[in-house]
């Protein structure tokens, strides 16, 4: 124990912070914990009012039903392929376009950025019919390409990357250019490494959005072979007059796992980018 008053104050502040964040954490995780616990309960117990937390008699029956009734490998593979391709495409195309919009003056830049912003603001539902007609004419219906292409370059990602790249100091890029680096090299060797936290964010959010997307995969698939997990789960768990909560919760737990894995893996990249590059 040192008698250093600043350190002691720091420690006390840290403790207070832990208590506050911990309390907040309890409020945040409640529904998730209930979802996981309830996936081991029979339907009757899930439906009780007021709700119960620990399962009286834990059962794996919901999971057994999920894996036996659904052609799980097919839907899972479709979901993974679509989400991975969509995420990879957005990371690449949006960071390149975001860089140009933030740091490279070119004619049409403002128009393009305006259009990008504008389209984020149009509700998806109103464009679904034209998008389907377009996909149908391009022969994309009922294919993985049809599920991926419309979301491969999204306005949201460009906006995100542009905003992050704006905060990279120009001197850093200028220094590299003076050293004779090509724009591609500047982008690849300087901008992208500095964007790690932003790329991680974009990866997390794009993967999640693609993974959970429901309406488009439903509309764009005309056979069961191209259904993704959320579509299949809705098919089997949500009926006309009843919802099977047992199947739905077990399915939700399975569906959420890959998203959490992606989050845990990518959130490690929330590390300081600029300080480590030795910026003067």
């Amino acid at each position: 124990m040192t008698g250093d008053p600043t350190r002691r104050r720091d420690r006390r502040a840290r403790l207070v912070l832990h208590v506050l964040l911990g309390l907040g954490l309890v409020a945040m995780v409640g529904p998730f914990v209930w979802m996981v616990l309830s996936s081991f309960k029979p339907e009757e117990e899930i439906r009780r009012v007021p709700i119960t937390w620990l399962p009286e008699d834990p059962t794996l029956a919901n999971y057994a039903e999920l894996f036996s009734r659904l052609d799980f490998p097919t839907y899972f593979t479709n979901s993974v392929v679509v989400a991975v391709l969509t995420t990879a495409g957005n990371l690449l195309f949006c960071s390149a376009a975001g860089y140009a919009l933030a740091k490279l003056p070119f004619p049409g830049r403002r128009v393009l950025f305006g259009m990008v912003l504008g389209t984020i603001m149009v509700p998806n539902i109103v464009t679904i019919v034209p998008l389907f007609v377009l996909s149908s004419n391009l022969g994309l219906v009922d294919s993985v390409a049809g599920l991926v292409l419309p979301f491969l370059a999204q306005a949201f990602g460009v906006f995100l990357m542009r905003q992050f790249i704006l905060s990279i100091p120009d001197d850093l890029l200028e220094a590299a250019r003076i050293d004779g680096a090509s724009e591609l090299r500047v982008f690849w060797r300087i901008v992208l490494p500095l964007c790690r936290p932003a790329l991680a964010t974009l990866g997390i959010l794009t993967f999640l959005a693609s993974w959970n997307n429901f309406l488009w995969p439903l509309v764009a698939a005309t056979t069961e072979d191209t259904y993704t997990l959320p579509v299949a789960l809705a098919l089997y768990a949500i009926g006309q007059n009843r919802t099977d909560y047992d199947l739905l919760l077990a399915g939700s737990v399975v569906v959420v796992l890959p998203v959490l894995v992606v989050f845990v893996l990518l959130q490690r990249h929330f590390v300081r980018g600029i300080a480590t590059t030795g910026l003067k």
Partner: peptide
């Protein structure tokens, strides 16, 4: 500049701006 935005712009114009 245009080289950097082209892949994005092409996909964006067809699948987002068009609809």
């Amino acid at each position: 500049g245009w080289t950097f935005v082209l892949p994005f712009a092409a996909l964006f114009l067809v699948f987002t701006a068009g609809p």
